[in-house]
Simulated assay, not measured.
Amino acid sequence: MRALLSKAVGGPDTLELTELPDPTAGPGQVVVVVKACAINYPDVLIIEDKYQFKPPRPFAPGGEIAGLVESVGEGVTGWGVGDRIMGTIGNGGLAERIAIDPSRMFRVPEGRSFAEGASLVLTYGTTIHALLDRGHLKDGQTLLVLGAAGGVGLAAIELGKAFGARVVAAVSSEEKAKAAKRAGADDTIVYARAPFDKDQSKALAERFKAAVGKNGADVIYDPVGGDYAEPALRSIAWEGRYLVVGFPAGIPKLPLNLTLLKSCDVCGVFWGAFAARDPAANQAHIDHLFRLWEQDRISPRVTETFPLERGGDAIAKMAARGAIGKLVVEM
Rank of each mutant, 00 (worst) to 15 (best):
Gly213Pro: 13
Gly213Lys: 14
Gly213Asp: 04
Lys214Thr: 15
Lys214Met: 14
Lys214Arg: 13
Lys214Val: 15
Asn215Phe: 15
Asn215Gly: 15
Asn215Met: 13
Asn215Gln: 14
Asn215Ser: 15
Asn215Tyr: 12
Asn215Trp: 11
Asn215Ala: 15
Gly216His: 00
Gly216Ile: 00
Gly216Ala: 11
Gly216Phe: 02
Gly216Trp: 00
Ala217Gln: 03
Ala217Pro: 06
Ala217Thr: 07
Asp218Ala: 15
Asp218Arg: 10
Asp218Gly: 04
Asp218Met: 06
Val219Ser: 03
Val219Leu: 01
Val219Lys: 00
Val219Tyr: 01
Val219Asp: 07
Val219Asn: 04
Val219Pro: 05
Ile220Glu: 02
Ile220Tyr: 01
Ile220Lys: 05
Tyr221Phe: 15
Tyr221Ser: 11
Tyr221Gln: 12
Tyr221Leu: 04
Tyr221Glu: 06
Tyr221Cys: 10
Tyr221Asn: 09
Tyr221Pro: 10
Asp222Gln: 12
Asp222Trp: 02
Asp222Tyr: 03
Pro223His: 11
Pro223Trp: 06
Pro223Thr: 13
Pro223Glu: 07
Val224Gly: 11
Val224Lys: 04
Val224Phe: 06
Val224Trp: 04
Val224Arg: 05
Val224Ile: 13
Gly225Met: 03
Gly225Ala: 07
Gly225Ser: 06
Gly225His: 08
Gly225Phe: 07
Gly225Pro: 06
Gly225Thr: 10
Gly226Gln: 04
Gly226Thr: 03
Gly226Phe: 08
Gly226Glu: 04
Asp227Met: 04
Tyr228His: 12
Tyr228Ser: 13
Tyr228Arg: 05
Ala229Cys: 01
Ala229Val: 08
Ala229Glu: 01
Ala229Asn: 04
Ala229Phe: 09
Ala229Met: 02
Glu230Thr: 12
Glu230Gly: 07
Glu230Arg: 09
Glu230Lys: 12
Glu230Asn: 11
Glu230His: 07
Glu230Met: 04
Glu230Ile: 03
Glu230Cys: 02
Pro231Arg: 02
Pro231Leu: 08
Pro231Phe: 08
Pro231Lys: 04
Pro231Glu: 08
Pro231Thr: 06
Pro231Met: 09
Pro231Ser: 12
Ala232Gln: 01
Ala232Arg: 01
Ala232Lys: 02
Ala232Pro: 02
Ala232Gly: 03
Ala232Ile: 01
Ala232Tyr: 03
Leu233Arg: 11
Leu233Ser: 14
Leu233Asn: 11
Leu233Thr: 12
Leu233Ile: 10
Arg234Asp: 14
Arg234Lys: 15
Ser235Met: 06
Ser235Gly: 14
Ser235Thr: 12
Ser235Val: 03
Ser235Cys: 11
Ser235Asp: 14
Ser235Arg: 02
Ser235Leu: 02
Ile236Leu: 12
Ile236Glu: 10
Ile236Ala: 10
Ile236Met: 13
Ile236Thr: 14
Ala237Ile: 06
Ala237Lys: 00
Trp238Lys: 07
Trp238Ser: 08
Trp238Asp: 13
Trp238Arg: 10
Trp238Val: 01
Trp238Tyr: 15
Glu239His: 10
Glu239Ala: 14
Glu239Phe: 10
Glu239Arg: 08
Glu239Ile: 07
Glu239Gly: 09
Glu239Asn: 13
Gly240Asn: 02
Gly240Trp: 11
Arg241Ala: 09
Arg241Met: 09
Arg241Cys: 07
Tyr242Glu: 02
Tyr242Ile: 00
Tyr242Asn: 01
Tyr242Ala: 00
Tyr242Phe: 11
Tyr242Lys: 00
Tyr242Thr: 00
Tyr242Asp: 01
Leu243Thr: 09
Leu243Trp: 08
Val244Leu: 13
Val244Ile: 15
Val244Gly: 08
Val244Thr: 14
